[in-house]
Amino acid sequence: MSQEPPALHDPDQAGVFFVGGNDLDVLAYYAFDARLLSRRIDLMGVRDKRTLLLRIAVALDFPVSAGRNWDGLLDSLRDLSWLEASGYVLLMEGAGELHAHNEPEFDTLIAILDQAQAHWHTQGVPFWAFLALRDKDIAELED
């Protein structure tokens, strides 16, 4: 990371952020140090909603009853009662491929992560999502 990491324990600073792939290990360390539950979600090769939802559900050990659609993803991210913790850090590796091949699904994912973060903020719980993108994806999003 080229800059000072955010205070991961602070729900007022939590949110959804784009980072480089090399930043995920550092963020995992800081999440551990802040005593937050972190989960690495491998999005390499993900180009469609079905695969995306499956990867997230497996990484976060969603209950079998969780819906396998966008509403189900949001409901599950706002619950997480089976992963009780003082805060959450999602480390999404390889998100650039989804962005490059299916921008509408990528945008929907970002919107859902933002809604989940807003929910947890009202509870005073930090909820972070770090999506690792390629440099060219980050530059494209900044334009």
Score class of each variant (00 low, 15 high):
1 M>W: 03
2 S>D: 15
2 S>C: 13
4 E>R: 13
5 P>C: 05
5 P>K: 00
6 P>M: 13
6 P>W: 14
7 A>Y: 08
7 A>W: 03
7 A>V: 04
8 L>K: 01
9 H>Q: 07
9 H>N: 06
10 D>A: 02
12 D>G: 06
14 A>P: 10
14 A>C: 12
15 G>W: 01
16 V>L: 11
16 V>M: 10
16 V>W: 09
17 F>P: 00
21 G>R: 12
21 G>K: 09
21 G>W: 06
27 L>D: 11
27 L>Y: 13
28 A>S: 15
28 A>C: 03
28 A>W: 08
28 A>F: 10
29 Y>A: 11
30 Y>R: 03
30 Y>K: 01
31 A>I: 03
31 A>P: 02
32 F>P: 02
33 D>H: 09
35 R>M: 10
35 R>N: 11
35 R>G: 04
35 R>W: 15
37 L>G: 05
39 R>S: 15
42 D>R: 08
47 R>D: 14
47 R>K: 12
51 T>P: 01
52 L>P: 07
55 R>F: 06
57 A>S: 15
57 A>P: 05
58 V>E: 14
59 A>H: 00
59 A>V: 04
60 L>N: 10
61 D>V: 11
62 F>Q: 07
63 P>D: 10
63 P>L: 05
64 V>Q: 15
64 V>P: 09
65 S>E: 09
68 R>V: 06
70 W>L: 00
70 W>M: 06
72 G>L: 01
73 L>F: 09
73 L>Y: 06
76 S>V: 01
80 L>E: 14
82 W>K: 12
83 L>I: 09
83 L>R: 08
85 A>C: 11
90 L>R: 04
90 L>C: 09
91 L>A: 09
92 M>Q: 06
92 M>H: 04
93 E>F: 10
93 E>T: 03
94 G>Q: 02
95 A>F: 13
96 G>Y: 14
96 G>F: 14
98 L>H: 08
98 L>G: 03
99 H>E: 11
99 H>M: 11
101 H>A: 07
101 H>R: 09
101 H>N: 14
102 N>M: 06
103 E>G: 04
104 P>Q: 06
106 F>H: 14
106 F>C: 02
108 T>R: 15
108 T>C: 06
108 T>A: 07
110 I>Y: 07
111 A>W: 06
112 I>R: 11
114 D>E: 15
116 A>G: 01
119 H>P: 08
119 H>V: 03
120 W>F: 06
120 W>Y: 07
121 H>V: 00
122 T>N: 07
122 T>M: 05
123 Q>G: 07
125 V>T: 05
126 P>E: 08
127 F>H: 01
128 W>E: 02
130 F>Q: 03
132 A>I: 02
133 L>M: 14
134 R>Q: 12
137 D>A: 10
137 D>K: 03
138 I>A: 12
141 L>R: 15
142 E>I: 05
143 D>I: 12
